[in-house]
Design a binder for these strands. Structure first.
Length: 210
DNA sequence: ACATTAAGTGATT
DNA sequence: AATCACTTAATGT
């Protein structure tokens, strides 16, 4: 386990910080599909993603959700940060996309490290920037893109995150993530299949164009 | 055999 | 692009 912390975050942090992370971090496994964080949850510990992938959703009052972005351990700044700072409660829902492992850092340490380690400060700032960009990307998608483009982007994103061109998901789930109806997804997928971009099966989809 | 779930399709707004 | 209504196919009990 100590290996993976250094493997993933060694490029960001100095050794002293890595040692501290090792000391106070609590490792936690999250199974695929498990809700890792819910709207309204008090966030007292900040998660660093060690491996796996997490999808970040913004649910509305009715429980309808919209996918904001995925987080993976290989990302430049791999953590769900925007939601975990300050004393505020989570405004998003985080669901494990695949079996994942996170390292929980107590909130107090985050503040402490912010003044103590330059590398930590940079990491936080970069992380903020990259999350903001991802949210802007999501906004662009909703505001300026048609459903077919959004679906294609979704499929590409998902294959990338899962490292698998075979997506084990249903039309219904996709519709939920994109906040549209299953019928629309089914029709658009059919179009993609006719264009030889995907092959449809019950319960899974093979993406041809990566 | 029957119920449930996933997906396909025409018609309407 | 959304909704309705209906069908078909696969899966579960």
């Amino acid at each position: 386990m100590n290996e993976s912390i250094k493997e993933i975050y060694g490029v960001f942090f100095e050794d002293a910080l890595l040692d501290e992370i090792e000391k106070v971090g609590i490792q936690k496994s999250v199974k695929a599909g498990e809700v890792f964080m819910e709207v309204g949850d008090e966030v007292l510990k900040m998660p660093l993603l060690l491996n796996g992938a997490i999808k970040i959703l913004r649910p509305d009052a009715n429980g309808d959700e919209l996918l904001l972005y995925f987080i993976e351990s290989g990302d430049t700044c791999a953590m769900s940060f925007n939601c975990c700072m300050g004393n505020s409660k989570s405004k998003i829902r985080a669901v494990a996309e695949v079996d994942s492992v996170v390292l929980l850092i107590p909130k107090e340490k985050m503040d402490e490290w912010l003044v103590k380690y330059k590398s930590w400060r940079n990491f936080i700032l970069e992380s903020y920037q990259s999350r903001l960009n991802e949210v802007l990307g999501a906004v662009d998608m909703i505001a300026f893109k048609n459903m077919d483009e959004r679906l294609l982007a979704y499929l590409q994103d998902k294959t990338k995150i899962n490292h698998d061109s075979r997506l084990y998901t249903t039309h219904h789930e996709i519709a939920n993530d994109l906040n549209t109806s299953r019928v629309v997804v089914s029709r658009l997928l059919k179009k993609l299949e006719n264009n030889k971009e995907v092959v449809l099966h019950r319960k899974y989809i093979d993406v041809i164009n990566l």
